Computed example of a mutant assay.
Amino acid sequence: MVNDLGNQYETADLLHSAAVRLLRRVRVVDAGMDLDGPRASLLSVLTFGGPQPVTRLAEIEQVSPPAITKLVTALEAEGLVVRERSATDRRVVLVTATAAGRQRLERGRAARVRAVAALLADASPEDLSALRHAAEILARLLTL
């Protein structure tokens, strides 16, 4: 099955615009986490992805190793992450979210989900079903 390139591009454009507006809308609740975007993103990677080496975190967050080290240091100072040597390779430093870090991130995520749910409050059951299906498709495509 061949995708219609024009339709694919138009859909991508609509989806991009909607995603940007959605993130702007829910970003206002992030103040409750008391973390800026880069630190919240890094904490999310560690909370949902588990311990990661510093070099891998730099790759995931698309920043330089010195920049990720600075973010890790800031989160560590707040007690939200810890650095530990890998048990299998002592040269590797793993960064792990602490219980306090996971709680803060999960509290922030819950606030964002509540904000999105409030946005969807007036959506029809059909629209909610379509959005759920679209979200499932995106989640699947993003794991490929």
Rank of each mutant, 00 (worst) to 15 (best):
residue 31 A to K: 13
residue 32 G to T: 11
residue 34 D to S: 14
residue 35 L to M: 00
residue 35 L to I: 01
residue 35 L to K: 01
residue 35 L to A: 01
residue 35 L to V: 01
residue 36 D to E: 09
residue 36 D to K: 03
residue 36 D to G: 04
residue 38 P to K: 13
residue 38 P to V: 07
residue 38 P to I: 05
residue 39 R to N: 03
residue 39 R to F: 01
residue 39 R to D: 04
residue 42 L to I: 03
residue 42 L to K: 04
residue 43 L to T: 00
residue 44 S to T: 11
residue 45 V to H: 06
residue 46 L to V: 00
residue 46 L to P: 00
residue 46 L to R: 00
residue 48 F to R: 13
residue 49 G to T: 02
residue 49 G to P: 04
residue 49 G to A: 00
residue 49 G to Y: 02
residue 51 P to I: 01
residue 52 Q to G: 02
residue 53 P to K: 08
residue 53 P to E: 15
residue 54 V to N: 08
residue 54 V to C: 03
residue 55 T to C: 03
residue 55 T to S: 12
residue 56 R to D: 12
residue 56 R to F: 06
residue 57 L to R: 05
residue 58 A to T: 05
residue 58 A to R: 06
residue 58 A to W: 07
residue 60 I to F: 08
residue 60 I to W: 06
residue 60 I to Y: 06
residue 61 E to D: 08
residue 62 Q to T: 05
residue 63 V to R: 03
residue 64 S to P: 02
residue 65 P to N: 07
residue 66 P to I: 02
residue 67 A to T: 08
residue 68 I to P: 10
residue 69 T to F: 04
residue 69 T to I: 09
residue 70 K to T: 05
residue 70 K to P: 03
residue 70 K to N: 08
residue 71 L to C: 07
residue 71 L to T: 05
residue 72 V to Y: 00
residue 72 V to D: 01
residue 73 T to D: 03
residue 73 T to V: 02
residue 74 A to K: 10
residue 74 A to G: 07
residue 74 A to H: 03
residue 74 A to C: 04
residue 75 L to K: 00
residue 77 A to D: 08
residue 77 A to W: 02
residue 77 A to I: 00
residue 77 A to S: 05
residue 77 A to M: 00
residue 79 G to Q: 03
residue 79 G to T: 03
residue 79 G to N: 06
residue 80 L to G: 01
residue 80 L to Y: 07
residue 80 L to V: 01
residue 82 V to Q: 13
residue 82 V to D: 10
residue 82 V to P: 01
residue 82 V to L: 13
residue 83 R to S: 08
residue 84 E to R: 13
residue 85 R to C: 07
residue 86 S to Q: 04
residue 86 S to I: 02
residue 86 S to W: 00
residue 87 A to S: 10
residue 87 A to V: 08
residue 87 A to Y: 08
residue 88 T to A: 15
residue 88 T to D: 14
residue 89 D to I: 02
residue 89 D to T: 01
residue 89 D to H: 05
residue 90 R to S: 14
residue 92 V to C: 09
residue 93 V to C: 09
residue 95 V to T: 10
residue 95 V to F: 09
residue 96 T to R: 14
residue 96 T to F: 05
residue 96 T to K: 12
residue 98 T to M: 03
residue 98 T to F: 05
residue 99 A to N: 15
residue 99 A to W: 12
residue 99 A to C: 07
residue 100 A to C: 04
residue 102 R to H: 10
residue 103 Q to I: 11
residue 104 R to D: 04
residue 105 L to T: 09
residue 105 L to G: 10
residue 105 L to W: 15
residue 105 L to M: 15
residue 106 E to K: 12
residue 106 E to A: 13
residue 107 R to M: 15
residue 107 R to G: 15
residue 107 R to A: 15
residue 107 R to C: 15
residue 107 R to L: 15
residue 110 A to T: 06
residue 110 A to S: 09
residue 111 A to I: 03
residue 112 R to T: 11
residue 113 V to K: 06
residue 114 R to Y: 11
residue 114 R to G: 07
residue 114 R to A: 13
residue 115 A to H: 05
residue 115 A to Q: 07
residue 116 V to C: 06
residue 117 A to C: 07
residue 117 A to D: 13
residue 119 L to S: 14
residue 119 L to D: 14
residue 120 L to H: 11
residue 120 L to D: 13
residue 120 L to T: 14
residue 121 A to Q: 10
residue 121 A to K: 10
residue 122 D to I: 08
residue 124 S to G: 08
residue 124 S to L: 09
residue 125 P to W: 12
residue 126 E to M: 05
residue 126 E to F: 04
residue 126 E to W: 06
